[in-house]
């Protein structure tokens, strides 16, 4: 058993400092910052590892003419969009008028990757609703879709003139997104070959 004077001094020295009581609050603040940024993210948007990579190789029949092939090299030479779509994809139907408007503006050629669908249905769809695509590649079994890392149609890739993927948009493009995001990127790709 220690002497009274002894214990008093040691207990005073070991008394937790004031800042210790602020620690839980500090930890709480750190957690809040994590939650604020973490919960604001859209879990559906998975960053593509293909950004900055050359377009995956493919050689597929054209939708307009199954006897002719379209290849990844055909996309080279100018800035272009590649849109992955299908007739079973309802968001593609929603996006379609925007693609038509983009095509009318003649700002950029749009190529299509017709994904996991019957070619005849695609032809009918384009006849009924209009065709914004310069050309469509038919990927009936979805193998090329996997090469492009497709997981949720519609998906749109922005390619530079060397056929390098510069940006990926998941989900339907809205006119607002086209004007504020894609178009400025296309302009800067044309001018400086950089987004």
């Amino acid at each position: 058993m220690s002497q009274p004077a002894d214990t008093q001094t040691t207990s005073q020295e070991n008394k937790p400092k004031r800042w210790v009581y602020l620690l839980p609050l500090g930890l709480f603040a750190v957690l809040m910052v994590f939650f604020f940024f973490g919960l604001g993210l859209n879990p559906r948007l998975i960053p593509s590892p293909l950004i900055g990579q050359p377009a995956p190789e493919f050689s597929l029949p054209k939708l307009s003419n199954p006897n002719e092939l379209i290849q990844h090299t055909d996309l080279k030479g100018e800035v272009s969009l590649l849109n992955i779509w299908a007739t079973w994809c309802t968001s593609c139907r929603q996006e379609h008028p925007v693609l038509m408007k983009i095509a009318e503006s003649k700002e950029v050629p749009i190529y299509g990757l017709y994904y996991k669908d019957v070619p005849e249905q695609g032809v009918v769809w384009l006849q009924n609703y209009g065709n914004p695509y310069l050309e469509n590649a038919v990927d009936e079994d979805g193998k090329v879709g996997i090469e492009w890392g497709a997981y949720g149609t519609p998906e749109t890739f922005l390619l530079d003139r060397d056929g390098i993927i510069r940006y990926k948009h998941v989900g339907p493009i809205s006119w607002h997104e086209w004007e504020t995001k894609l178009l400025p990127m296309i302009d800067s790709l044309r001018k400086n070959n950089d987004v």
Partner: peptide, 8 residues
């Protein structure tokens, strides 16, 4: 798989 879809 990760070259196409990322670490996700």
């Amino acid at each position: 798989m990760t070259e196409r879809y990322g670490d996700f």
